[in-house]
């Protein structure tokens, strides 16, 4: 489903990615680990098409997204959900409005929005707080809302760059649990993280990166640097 072939990313003098080759199949849960500056976020930006590789191909469903035209980009973005460490919620909008906004700006009808938003909020366990503002929520709750927003287009791939970076262990585990649940429903989940305990407990495929290179790729591995 995802294939990265010979991807390199050069930032001025820094080689953030160095000849990455990688395949991810339908329904997989992949964790990306590695020390700070290893290139995890850069790899994720290749997948979300925020950055283009200097050389190499990023194939998603056999299409090279490095060659996407800017008019095609919005439609690609609707097929991948993205979650960040800092949630990126709009502070003046309620939980419901934040999720609905993602549909509104993609030309969804009012009926679709009314139908879809409560279901997604229910899935992440935030339906009860749908009328709260982000400032009235805990970090874990905010991350659930941001996951709900990422899922609202029913993406085939969910990408999360350190989604637990700002959360305490209990909240972190709840978020990971949610990601695993989403993965069980068939969505590919790609998770970049520093958190050793989490990776150890997930027991899924782990990619280890260092200095822009892919060092190891193991199924059901633990976290080791």
């Amino acid at each position: 489903m995802i294939e990265i072939a010979g991807a390199t990313k050069q930032y001025n003098t820094v080689k953030a990615l160095d000849n990455i080759n990688l395949k991810i199949a339908r329904g997989e849960f992949v964790s990306i680990v590695g020390p700070s500056g290893a290139g995890k976020s850069t790899l994720i930006k290749m997948l979300t098409c925020e950055e283009k590789p200097t050389t190499g191909k990023i194939l998603i469903a056999d299409r090279n997204i490095a060659k996407l035209k800017s008019e095609e980009l919005p439609y690609y973005r609707r097929k991948v959900g993205v979650v960040f460490q800092d949630f990126k919620l709009l502070p003046q909008k309620t939980v419901y409005e934040n999720v609905a906004f993602a549909l509104e700006v993609c030309d969804a009808t009012d009926e679709e929005i009314k139908d879809r938003v409560p279901k997604i909020l229910d899935l992440v366990g935030m339906l009860k707080k749908k009328d709260n503002l982000p400032t009235e929520l805990s970090g874990g709750e905010r991350q659930r809302v941001s996951i709900a927003r990422a899922l609202v287009h029913s993406p085939k791939i969910l990408i999360a760059d350190e989604p637990t970076g700002n959360l305490d262990p209990i909240n972190s585990w709840e978020i990971i649990d949610l990601l695993l649940r989403i993965n069980r429903q068939g969505t590919v989940v790609i998770l970049a993280t520093h958190n050793k305990e989490i990776v150890d407990r997930i027991k899924k495929r782990v990619l280890l990166m260092k200095g822009g290179k892919l060092i190891s790729d193991r199924i059901k591995a633990g976290y080791c640097i």
Binding site: T48, E71, L73, P74, Y75, Y76, R77, R78, V82, K88, L90, F101, A102, E104, V105, C106, D107, R149, A150, V152, H153
Partner: peptide
């Protein structure tokens, strides 16, 4: 921020 979020959720360029 709002524009960045719009981009990430695949907002139509017109928006």
């Amino acid at each position: 921020n709002e524009i960045e979020i719009m981009r990430l959720v695949g907002a139509n360029d017109n928006f």
